[in-house]
Design a protein around this nucleic acid. Structure first.
Length: 379
DNA sequence: GTTGGATACGCATTTACCTCA
DNA sequence: TTTGAGGTAAATGCGTATCCA
């Protein structure tokens, strides 16, 4: 049984590579301007993995279990250019961003055809870990081609770039007043340091905010396109949503964490099912082994009896004793021939026994996937 | 070519706040 | 009205990768 799980990999490694298949690709991540070499390397790696739609060429085994997390947002993508009220994001009743439309466990090795598209459009994560908890229904190749290759710097340029998903969604969320305590309008006001918090918000630090549904939906759609953001995308998103770049960054971090948590839950569920199956299989095999051992004991008993006391009738194949037969051997199978010990006819043996002694290659083990070709009958 | 500091980023964990039953 | 649970935005610390002197 092939589990289709690569449990040995670290999450860090997974997360580092799995996002490659996303629309933006990891090559468009951070510091692309400062490090074109890295961008080239990662782009090459993306090509090696086939990018978004090309993972078919990857020697990765098909996952045994597929989980689709289809978004319930129902948002067209690219979204309409009208106001955000044009669409109505559907959130889970609990307010969770995740809307599990399809949680399907399929038999190992089965190829699952997901509703809304073929597997070829899924994340690389799916092919790596076996299931996909965060897969857009129509992650088209166009999304994959939306590599943020715009050389224009600045959020303004990014917002108008056709290659920028955020920019392709000209929506202004400034009316929602979710710009944070400091307001500030977000755009271009990135944090000064690596971990600069929101000290610029006038002292009321750590004011709990609640992103509007439109903002959440927008971020969600962006997350489907690319699970990580490069600085340009972050700035563009922040400007679009009238949030601070730090907020966008934190949102993506938390979103990745949620995805990973859900993935872990799915993994655990799947492993539990596998464990149950294997336990049952083990129990069955143990039982069969016990039966085989019992049979072997009977045979040994016959072989160790004194030769003078046993005789095999050549015609009826019955073992008969010329003297008083041992009671313990005959007790379990009363002899029909007056105290003689008769071997149980094959039809009375346990099925596995009959199969075992009739043909060694046709044992009814469930673990045997297919019947072996019949070997020449041995004597 | 090697090394160490600076920088940026992601992740795990924790905290604080908000919403709702 | 109070309260506890759950969700989530945000803070913090750590590890890692990269750049550069």
């Amino acid at each position: 049984m092939e589990l289709g799980l690569s449990l040995g990999e670290t999450m860090a490694d997974a997360g580092r590579d799995l996002v490659l298949g996303l629309g933006m690709g990891a090559g468009a991540r951070r510091d692309e301007d400062a490090d074109p070499g890295r961008r080239e390397r990662e782009a090459r790696r993306e090509l090696e993995f086939g990018g978004l739609g090309g993972k078919c060429g990857r020697p990765s085994p098909d996952p045994a279990v597929w989980l689709t997390l289809l978004p319930g947002l129902g948002l067209p993508w690219p979204p309409p250019s009208e106001a955000t009220s044009e669409y109505s994001p559907v959130h889970a009743p609990s307010g969770s961003y995740l809307d599990y439309h399809c949680l399907s466990f399929l038999p190992c090795g089965a190829v699952a055809e997901m509703a809304g598209g073929s597997r070829s459009g899924g994340h690389l994560e799916a092919s790596t870990r076996g299931f996909d908890v965060n897969r857009a229904p129509s992650l088209s190749a166009a999304g994959a081609a939306a590599e943020d290759d715009a050389g224009a710097a600045g959020a303004a340029a990014a917002s108008s770039s056709p290659n920028n998903s955020a920019g392709s969604f000209p929506t202004d969320f400034s009316a929602h007043g979710q710009a944070g305590p400091g307001g500030g309008g977000g755009g271009g006001a990135d944090r000064a340091g690596p971990r600069a918090s929101d000290e610029d918000d006038g002292g009321s630090a750590r004011k709990k905010l609640r992103l509007s549904k439109e903002q959440s939906a927008f971020l969600e759609e962006s997350f489907k396109e690319h699970a990580t953001l490069n600085p340009k995308q972050k700035l563009a998103l922040a400007k679009q949503l009238n949030l601070r770049p730090r907020q966008v960054e934190v949102w993506f971090q938390n979103r990745r964490a949620r995805t990973k948590l859900k993935q872990t839950e799915v993994d655990c569920e799947y492993l539990k099912r596998c464990c149950e199956t294997l336990t049952e299989e083990n129990r069955r095999l143990q039982k069969e082994l016990a039966e085989l051992r019992a049979l072997k004991t009977v045979h040994l008993f016959y072989m160790h009896l004194p030769a003078t006391t046993l005789s095999m009738c050549p015609s009826c194949e019955r073992v008969a004793s010329s003297s008083a037969a041992p009671s313990q051997g005959a007790s379990s199978s009363p002899s029909p021939a007056g105290g003689g010990i008769a071997a149980a006819p094959p039809e009375q043996r346990p099925s596995s026994f009959a199969a075992l002694f009739s043909s060694p290659l046709s044992r009814p083990l469930a673990a045997q996937p297919q019947p072996q070709p019949q070997a020449p009958a041995s004597s």
